[in-house]
């Protein structure tokens, strides 16, 4: 039954993505939500139960929300969130996921930066951006038992229950 559940979720996510696509027009774009600290990215896609945890507050995520360093992305059983960062790194999580944006620095004129994200559970899709290009080791993704170093690529991370 696990397989069927996975398929069901995929359909839901696809349907949500489609409805977002239909709604897309310049006119409906909401102004960015306020966030303290430097903006490091923006929520682009949301479906199901999806949250940004910031300083102890658990905020329902909405497309257009700005994210800052130390934010934690969380999704429930039917949730997903997609975020594009200011260095053009792209993250998206599946359901039952938790990803902490531990560290993010990027100087767009000097083209230098560092990024550390921590996946404690669930799934994460990554398309690396300018930070991963600046130097080897500039971008790292941690899991409870491993550290991933990223050299300009697309990749996927799943943190399961057998670690």
């Amino acid at each position: 039954m696990k397989c069927l559940t996975i398929l069901g979720l995929r359909r839901l996510a696809a349907a949500a993505a489609l409805s977002v696509g239909i709604a897309a027009s310049l006119a409906v774009t909401a102004p960015p939500a306020a966030a303290q600290g430097a903006t490091i990215g923006q929520v682009k896609t949301v479906s199901g139960q999806s949250f940004i945890v910031r300083g102890g507050a658990r905020l329902p995520a909405t497309a257009g929300d700005l994210v800052v360093e130390k934010d934690v992305i969380e999704t429930g059983g039917d949730g997903s969130i997609g975020i594009t960062f200011v260095d053009n790194t792209v993250f998206s999580t599946g359901p039952n996921s938790q990803v902490a944006l531990e560290e993010f620095r990027f100087d767009s004129s000097e083209f230098q930066g560092a990024m550390v994200a921590s996946v404690s559970r669930g799934t994460l899709s990554v398309v690396s951006g300018d930070i991963a290009r600046t130097s080897p080791g500039a971008m790292r993704v941690r899991t409870p038992t491993t550290v991933l170093g990223v050299r300009g690529t697309r990749f996927l991370v799943r943190v399961g229950d057998d670690r």
Partner: peptide, 30 residues
């Protein structure tokens, strides 16, 4: 592999770029 019963393992996968090439990730388990 995708429908395994029992606990799901940690899994890391490199995907192709649109041009079919890929970059790399290093996996350090300590």
């Amino acid at each position: 592999a995708a429908c395994e019963s029992g606990p799901r393992a940690n899994l890391f996968v490199v995907l192709p770029n649109p041009d079919g090439t890929s970059g790399a990730i290093s996996v350090d388990d300590g």
